[in-house]
Computed example of a mutant assay.
Amino acid sequence: MRPEALALLAAACWAVAALFSAPASQRLGAFTFSRWRMLFASLILWAIALTTGGWRSLDASALGLLAISGVIGIFVGDTALFACMNRLGPRRSGVLFATHALFSAVLAWVFLGESLWGWALVGSGLLVG
């Protein structure tokens, strides 16, 4: 399958999942919902990794960084996302979350000296629009 089609399917899954998870997040609370979500996602990931042997290519030295990245990026980020969703609703929080690419580009420009040109700039403009 083409990468563009896979990216479109991933975006569609993300959007639909936000609509399905909004009632559960409101009922359970952001922290509890994130904890249950991480538990089930971890079980599925471990099952797939064990059956396919996907962990064999991972260096042992990278396990600590992987764990820190998961805790900060997924657990803290998802908890904040669902807390935002509980306050704003799934549609408004989805629009707010879509601006993370703009903020990433601006912060990369300010702190790392990166710049966007050509199609990357056009795509960023379309995303913000």
Rank of each mutant, 00 (worst) to 15 (best):
A47C: 10
L107P: 00
D78M: 04
P90I: 00
L6R: 13
A11G: 14
R37N: 09
A7N: 15
L43S: 08
A108R: 07
F82C: 02
L8C: 13
L39V: 08
L112V: 05
D59I: 04
N86H: 09
A62I: 05
V95Y: 15
W117H: 09
N86Y: 10
G94I: 03
I44K: 09
D78S: 06
A11I: 11
L28M: 07
I44T: 04
R87A: 09
L8K: 13
A12N: 10
M85Y: 04
A15W: 15
W14N: 12
G94M: 01
R27Y: 07
F31G: 04
A5F: 15
A120W: 08
C13V: 08
G118C: 04
A47Q: 10
S124P: 04
A24G: 09
L112S: 07
P23W: 07
L102Q: 04
P23Q: 06
F20S: 08
I48N: 12
I74A: 15
A7Y: 14
F82E: 00
L65C: 10
V122L: 15
F111M: 09
S34W: 00
A10S: 15
M85L: 13
A67E: 01
A80L: 13
L81P: 00
T32K: 11
Q26K: 10
M38A: 14
V110F: 06
F20E: 07
W36S: 14
W119E: 12
R56P: 00
G77H: 05
D78L: 02
A17I: 05
A120C: 12
R2Y: 15
L50H: 09
F82D: 01
N86K: 11
A12L: 10
L127R: 04
L9T: 05
F20A: 12
T51R: 14
S61I: 07
R27M: 09
V106F: 13
V76I: 14
L96H: 04
R37W: 05
I68N: 11
A12F: 09
S69G: 02
A17N: 12
T52N: 13
L121M: 05
P23N: 08
S61F: 11
